[in-house]
């Protein structure tokens, strides 16, 4: 069992903020009334963060990665997540090997 101090602090911090998000709703139920644009903005938080996290890899690494990201995006419109991963990874491996 090996733990790095900074890693442990990070995991505990991630755990604390995540548990906070999980119970906060119990205490504000009934007082939270999001609608219209505010609701749309709140609903957009997860995809906005997820896109931002992968933007360097998908858009700013090289054309092979960008092309493989497009393959994965096309797969994601109709296939489950594991198939999306398999096709995206397969595309990047093939493009790196061929070019």
């Amino acid at each position: 069992m090996s733990f790095d101090t900074a890693t442990l602090i990070t995991i505990l911090g991630m755990s604390a903020v995540t548990y906070f998000t999980r119970i906060a709703g119990l205490f504000i139920a009934g007082r939270l009334d999001l609608s219209g644009r505010a609701k749309a903005a709140f609903d957009a938080i997860p995809p906005a963060v997820l896109v931002a996290v992968i933007a360097p890899s998908a858009l700013a690494t090289g054309w092979r990665e960008t092309a493989a990201a497009l393959v994965a995006a096309a797969a994601a419109t109709r296939l489950p997540i594991l198939a999306t991963i398999a096709l995206g990874v397969g595309a990047v491996v093939a493009l790196r090997a061929l070019t």
Partner: peptide
């Protein structure tokens, strides 16, 4: 890392609020 975790998981607040009743 902690901040990105908070942002990604903020949606839990709405789920908890809808489950509470």
């Amino acid at each position: 890392l902690v901040f990105s975790t908070l942002l990604i998981n903020a949606r839990h607040v709405l789920m908890g609020a809808s489950l509470m009743p």
